[in-house]
Design a protein around this nucleic acid. Sequence first.
DNA 1: AATACTATGTCAGAATTCTTACATGAGCAA
DNA 2: TTGCTCATGTAAGAATTCTGACATAGTATT
Lengths: 141, 141
Amino acid sequence: MSNQEQQVGYVVKQAQSLLRLRMEEALHPYALTVSQYSCLHHLLREPGISAAGLARATFMTRQSMNSMLQQLLERELVERPARPASGRALPTALTAAGVDLLAAAQAEVDGVERRMLSGLSPSELISLTHGLNACVKALGD
Amino acid sequence: MSNQEQQVGYVVKQAQSLLRLRMEEALHPYALTVSQYSCLHHLLREPGISAAGLARATFMTRQSMNSMLQQLLERELVERPARPASGRALPTALTAAGVDLLAAAQAEVDGVERRMLSGLSPSELISLTHGLNACVKALGD
DNA sequence: AATACTATGTCAGAATTCTTACATGAGCAA
DNA sequence: TTGCTCATGTAAGAATTCTGACATAGTATT
């Protein structure tokens, strides 16, 4: 293997790709994509968020998010009011079915994350998180 | 911000998304997508590789890679023989123009990577790489 | 030799996501 | 008030990537 591929950027991409693959496998029984799971996951923690805010939190465009929310609405996993109370933002939240499905799916995804970190000591995990956050900060505008 | 989002998986995704965004910006003047750049980058280090091997190295399907190679062939940045010498694999390599474009683009991308790592000490960088590689290993089959 | 298995390339179509564009509502300043 | 700016939602279309399927070539197995 070429040592150029050991550049940090490549390893970040490799880790993210593999994590996504394992998450896809874990979420398959629940008929959820990783993007859909991320959406539900964030909705549990920030109910009433707008689609645009949700898109920012999950690194998508607001157009893609609205497209995805349509599917989740049809499956009755999320709900939105027909009209905004004020402004244009439509506050989105999980339904009871959405909460239940998320809970089941999250148990699987948590297992994937535990597997990912299984080779790291607590101090190594702290170093990893610290390093990644430093990368995010340095790349932020 | 919810502390659940501080899970390592989320930070990995955040770092990768931001890195991709900065790379897109850096590559825009060269009319290269990040995927195309990754392809050219790997071709420099492993000339004669098959499209399927290239796909594995860049985390895509071989169908997508062949689709992308068509564009790079039309731009005469890469070249492939019309018929395989043996077997089915078509060995792919950079053209002189591909080497030149890659060199210019890589200078920009290297700057992005330096920026990403600018807040890390040498030992922190080693810890980060070590942690990411441990994640990859643990998630591998 | 005959068969099975694996890897590669390719085709067709679907799914996802993005880009571009426009309309609407809120806040702010002149 | 009027105009400007920003954020949100939405629509239409393009671009990218994936899934499923099939044919071919090499290799291994029986």
